[in-house]
Amino acid sequence: MIHKHIIFWAMVALAGFGCQTTSTTHHDHVEMGTGVAEAMLKDTTPIDGPSVTLVVHGMSCPLCSNNLGKTLMEMPGVEGVMVNLDTGKVVVTTPGPIKPTRSALAGAVKNSGFKLIRLEEAP
């Protein structure tokens, strides 16, 4: 019986080694992003301009980004959301007089399970 267990777990372990092939990048962005997100969560002033760009990390796939997109679209004043997964940029269009606050935008990113790196407002 023991050798059967050894064979089974050896196969599982061998399969597990295959995952050790990835590299780590952008750690500086994470540290910076953490600070930005925490500050933004306390900023209750509304954004300026007709649009705002959120730079977000951790949206690993199209369905993941849909999670954030739907949350943003439910916010008052938001009329459009466009996501570029490659750059992590989420462009939020707010053409009307009602503008979301920075804390609300940061909260939407956090509650969707992602990391807000920075917020870029249109001039």
Binding site: T25, H27, V30, G88, F114, K115
Partner: peptide, 10 residues
């Protein structure tokens, strides 16, 4: 635990 290391990396 969560570590987001890039736009699509997590």
């Amino acid at each position: 635990w969560q570590q987001d290391t890039g736009p699509t990396d997590t």
